[in-house]
Lab assay of single mutants.
Amino acid sequence: SAEDNLGPLPENWEMAYTENGEVYFIDHNTKTTSWLDPRCLNKQQK
């Protein structure tokens, strides 16, 4: 699965689903949400 390739979410991040079944990500560090997987963003920065 995609999660196996990317590994676990960063600390204090949570994956959630909208009512429509779309995946989004919650950053409890900054109390924000994102459509972008933080694991993908980390890979792009390196």
Rank of each mutant, 00 (worst) to 15 (best):
residue 13 W to I: 09
residue 14 E to Q: 08
residue 32 T to G: 06
residue 42 N to T: 12
residue 26 I to V: 14
residue 5 N to Q: 09
residue 42 N to I: 14
residue 5 N to I: 09
residue 1 S to G: 08
residue 45 Q to A: 12
residue 45 Q to K: 15
residue 37 D to E: 03
residue 39 R to T: 03
residue 22 E to P: 01
residue 28 H to W: 05
residue 27 D to F: 00
residue 44 Q to P: 07
residue 14 E to C: 07
residue 24 Y to S: 02
residue 41 L to C: 10
residue 13 W to S: 04
residue 21 G to P: 01
residue 23 V to I: 13
residue 16 A to E: 07
residue 7 G to C: 06
residue 10 P to E: 04
residue 1 S to A: 10
residue 29 N to S: 11
residue 2 A to H: 10
residue 2 A to S: 13
residue 23 V to Q: 15
residue 34 S to H: 06
residue 28 H to C: 04
residue 17 Y to I: 11
residue 31 K to P: 01
residue 27 D to V: 00
residue 2 A to C: 12
residue 40 C to G: 14
residue 23 V to Y: 12
residue 7 G to F: 06
residue 29 N to T: 13
residue 1 S to I: 07
residue 3 E to G: 10
residue 24 Y to E: 01
residue 14 E to D: 11
residue 6 L to R: 12
residue 11 E to W: 11
residue 30 T to W: 04
residue 6 L to C: 05
residue 45 Q to L: 14
residue 30 T to F: 05
residue 43 K to C: 11
residue 15 M to N: 02
residue 22 E to A: 07
residue 15 M to F: 05
residue 45 Q to M: 14
residue 24 Y to M: 03
residue 38 P to F: 00
residue 38 P to Y: 00
residue 9 L to Q: 03
residue 8 P to R: 09
residue 45 Q to R: 10
residue 14 E to S: 09
residue 15 M to L: 13
residue 42 N to D: 14
residue 7 G to Y: 07
residue 2 A to T: 15
residue 24 Y to G: 01
residue 38 P to L: 00
residue 44 Q to C: 09
residue 20 N to V: 12
residue 2 A to W: 09
residue 32 T to E: 01
residue 33 T to H: 03
residue 2 A to N: 09
residue 21 G to F: 07
residue 38 P to K: 01
residue 7 G to M: 08
residue 39 R to V: 02
residue 1 S to E: 05
residue 35 W to K: 04
residue 45 Q to I: 11
residue 9 L to G: 01
residue 13 W to L: 05
residue 42 N to E: 15
residue 27 D to L: 00
residue 34 S to G: 04
residue 37 D to L: 02
residue 25 F to I: 00
residue 42 N to A: 13
residue 21 G to R: 12
residue 20 N to S: 15
residue 35 W to H: 04
residue 7 G to W: 06
residue 9 L to H: 01
residue 17 Y to W: 14
residue 3 E to A: 10
residue 24 Y to F: 12
residue 27 D to W: 00
residue 19 E to K: 13
residue 15 M to Q: 14
residue 38 P to Q: 00
residue 24 Y to H: 03
residue 19 E to T: 11
residue 16 A to Y: 02
residue 25 F to S: 01
residue 25 F to E: 02
residue 45 Q to H: 12
residue 27 D to S: 03
